[in-house]
Design a protein around this nucleic acid. Structure first.
Lengths: 358, 358
DNA sequence: CTGAAAGCGCTTACAG
DNA sequence: CTGAAAGCGCTTACAG
């Protein structure tokens, strides 16, 4: 980096044009209304090539109005560690990344609490935050204050999985209730006699697991299916180890849940799982116990990860369109960039994918 | 962004100090040797807080020497699409990201061919490239030229899975041969009568699958195991569809391979798979055919993804320490940043994890 | 299109 | 520590 690099004046000198012209060549969408012939443009490009000139990013950023960068923040609770991308954040990122690429934006991964000031310093134009809703989040008060500030300044940001109920924030949320209604419909059709729900076996689980369990129970109201709580394990479980969170994976929770329910004699006919990781653990443990799926135990997941169709057996699950969600997040902030008053809370409808575990 | 934001002079005025002092507070490791009392520092911080001042990133970048940003590039071939992060890149990114976070660096995801000039424009301090070696890579010549330029300028970069044989480039590579020797050792111990290899069923597969098949065959030389090519499917397969690459997933290749080998009557006693995705597909298809694993068909994977231990049955596989590789990549470029002459080609030894598919 | 210049918001060297 | 200033490498407004 110590090497003295050519500047815009060097290129201008070599090409025999003014610096304004060079600037315009490298900044065609800028405010300056210089018009030039293709021959002039080519002469500038040739000179730049010859000198190995590239515009300095810091200077461009300082003078220009855009960093052409979108931040992506995993606002994880402290116990997970600030940087841990599991399967579904990765799929959202793929959708966001491809949309950004098409729009000539880059994606900056932002660790930990840093996301709070990247727009202040103009390092990013917009921010996509992936919410992570747990029962006890030490960062809740801090997030509330941050989002209030963002709103006051009309920053272009959006939260996927709204993690802040106390405030109306721009967000993209999955309609969990609709998802559980689809699941309940399947259970009624199949006529399973009993149903349980498996979430995370920890005192501080993600809230959507608790929500989904409640919504499932409500959707099954009036049916002949037995939903007694004894069939379910979700959150703090007496007699179960509080499983340490390893990254964002929860396969082990599914395995442990099956073992516990089985040993207690309360394994239901069908287990609905808070996500596909848990379902994979459930299938793994059930197979080890010699249970046939779906004849003796039906399993329903939630998420439809890229590889859930290759489970043994292939998983029946609720499909979240993750890449689509990533793309929508991109479009959301781009629109907000153009319309400072724009506000929305987008709701996404999941679908049900029936495979071989039901 | 139209709002006029407070500058360093505003803070200096309010705190009753010089701009140099403010700069030093926000830039403690800078070259200037201003010393101040804790009381002065606190006064500056209070003034900044009151004005909601944050240093402008563009100006800092222009004047300073570091962007404190490391680029991460997935140099995928065009047919995959420029932005597609599958399982193992994600795990490498997690390792890189956490190391970067600890070192106060950010990670910028770089799409497509852009990685070629991000160091030129000083947008990033260093670059980690994840190589993707296919038989025919249209970008090969371009990569060669790029790496030559990087070497000439002593840029801090490192390639994980060296994708450019024609040039000595700083790299971190897995010792595939060692991995396949471990696999061969297991096969000898188990005494499997016949062994095949399943890679990607496409005319343009990843080279490491072909390498691994060859290395396996060499490692089994002299054993009683039958390695006849009829048991293997890797690359172009006559009679098989050329499976379109969906992202970087290859589960479908594993499924298709089992169906084909089975219908031809050449399913071996043990299938070694080019990666765990293929292994998952193999298990899924074998179960559908009613084959018992491992009694009738043994399966060995490669990678040890985070969830391979939860396959049904849990997968025996060669373990790549992906997060460790990400961390090593970080340390590599940080060292190169400090020692411009530093060069290395690091080799990583995989280990064998025996679970229930053998 | 040119050419000379202001200024973005910082860091740093300098004289005190 | 202060205070005034140069300068990083650009973009842009201005007069021609």
């Amino acid at each position: 980096m110590a090497v003295s690099r050519p500047g815009i004046r060097d290129v201008a000198r070599l090409a025999g044009v003014s610096v304004g012209t060079v600037s315009k060549v490298f900044n065609p969408s800028g405010a300056v209304t210089i018009r030039m012939t293709e021959a002039t443009r080519q002469r500038v490009l040739d000179a730049a090539e010859q000198l190995h000139y590239t515009p300095n990013y810091g200077a461009t950023l300082l003078r220009g109005q855009s960093s052409r960068t979108i931040g992506f923040s995993l606002s994880l609770p402290a116990e997970v560690g600030a940087m841990y991308m599991s399967d579904y954040p990765r799929e959202i990122l793929n959708g966001l990344g491809r949309a950004a690429e098409a729009g000539n934006y880059q994606v900056l991964l932002i660790h930990g609490g840093d996301y709070r000031n990247y727009m202040d310093i103009e390092r990013i134009d917009a921010l996509v935050i992936l919410g992570f809703r747990v029962i006890n989040n030490a960062r809740q008060a801090d997030m509330l204050e941050t989002f209030q500030r963002f709103n006051r300044r009309q920053y272009p940001y959006v939260v996927i999985n709204n993690a802040c109920d106390a405030l109306p924030i721009p967000s993209i949320n999955l309609d969990n209730r609709h998802g559980m209604e689809l699941v309940a419909g399947l259970i009624r059709r199949k006529g399973y006699a009993s149903v349980g729900f498996v979430g995370e076996l920890t005192a501080n689980p993600q809230r959507h697991h608790l929500d989904r369990e409640n919504m499932l129970r409500e959707a099954l109201r009036g049916s002949s299916t037995d939903c007694d709580p004894k069939y379910s394990l979700n959150g703090t479980v007496h007699g179960a180890p509080d499983l340490p969170r390893v990254g964002l994976y929860s396969h082990a929770d599914g395995m442990e849940a099956v073992r516990l329910l089985h040993s207690r004699g309360t394994l239901p006919r069908c287990l609905v799982c808070g996500n596909d990781h848990i379902a994979q653990g459930v299938i793994c443990a059930a197979a080890q116990l010699g249970l046939r799926i779906p004849e003796e135990l039906a399993v329903i997941g939630f998420d439809d990860l890229a590889y859930s169709r290759f489970f043994n057996p292939p998983l029946t699950t609720v499909c979240q369109p993750f890449e689509e969600i990533g793309r929508l997040a991109y479009e959301f902030v781009i629109r907000k960039l153009a319309e400072p008053e724009y506000f929305a809370q987008v709701e996404i409808k999941p679908t049900l994918i029936e495979r071989s575990t039901t």
